[in-house]
Amino acid sequence: MTAPLLDLRGLSVLYPGEHGATLAVDNVSFTLRREKLGIVGESGSGKSTLGRALLRLLPQARITAERMTFDGMDLLSLPERAMRHLRGRRMSMILQDPKFSLNPIRRVGDQVAEACRIHLRCSRAEARERSLAMLEAVQIADPRRVYHLYPHEVSGGMGQRIMIAMMLLPEPDLVIADEPTSALDVTVRLQVLRILDRLVTERGIGLLMISHDLNLVRNFCDRVLIMYAGRVVESLPAADLERARHPYTQALLAAQPRIGGDRSPLKVPERRADWKEPIGPQP
C-alpha cells in the first residue's frame, strides 16, 4: 500500500480567549489516502476547525500534533513560504457558500483563470483556454458566456460549480470540502456532487468532506469519521453508517426525520459527557 497522503496523529487545536482557552480539536488522529473521507458532527464539534488547521489558516490558534504530514512533508514545521506553495496548488478548499467566496466585482472566468496563472505560471491565453475547459468539465453548458459573468449573475449551483472548477484546476492532491452543498437545493446538490465525485475519482484526488448531513456523507464518501466535542468518537465505512455503534452517532441518526417515517417525536440527543469516549477500531 502506498504511503498516506495525509497522516495525522494527536492533532489538537486550542483557541486562546479572554475566558480561558477553548480546545476545539482534541487529540484527533487519522490518515487519508486517495479516497473520499467524510467528517460529520454538529456545529461546534470542531470539524471545520480541523479542515482549516490542515491548511494552517488559523493564525490565532495553537496547533499541536505528534505528527501532521502531507505527502511526507511536516505541516507543522513547514515555513510559511513553502506553505503558500502548497495552499491552492496541492491542497485546496471548497467552502460552503459561493456568494461569499467569489469576488463580487470580478468576472467569474477571470477568477478561475487567476488560479491557473498563479499556480501553474501559464500565459494569459493558456489560462483562459484551461479555464474554459475546466468550466466545461464541471458541466457548465455555455462556458464562453459564463466566463464573462459576474458572481451575482450566476445561480448558487453554478457558483458552486465555478468554485469547484477553480479549486480543481491546479490539479491538487488533496481537496477539503467544507459543507460544499449545504447552500444548494436538493436537485442541484445531487448534480454538483456527481460532478465532484467524477473529478475526484478520475484524477485520484484525496477528498475530505466536512458536513453535518449524514445522508450526504453516507452516499458520497468511502469512510466516515464522527466528531463530537472536538474528538473523533467513531470511524467506519460509509456503507455501515446505519450500523454505527457509538451512542452519539446513533443519536444523530435517530434525530433525522425520514420520508415515510412514523411521525412520532424525533429523538433528541441528550449530550452525555461519556460520549467523548471513542468506540471501535481507531484509525
Binding site: 453535518h212 449524514l214 443519536a251 444523530l252 411521525r263 417525536p265 429523538k267
Partner: peptide, 15 residues
C-alpha cells in the same frame, strides 16, 4: 440548525 437541534424544534412545533 443542526440535525439534533432541528429535532428539538420540530418536536416543539408538532407538540
Amino acid at each position: 440548525l443542526d440535525v439534533s437541534v432541528q429535532a428539538e424544534v420540530l418536536n416543539l412545533l408538532s407538540e
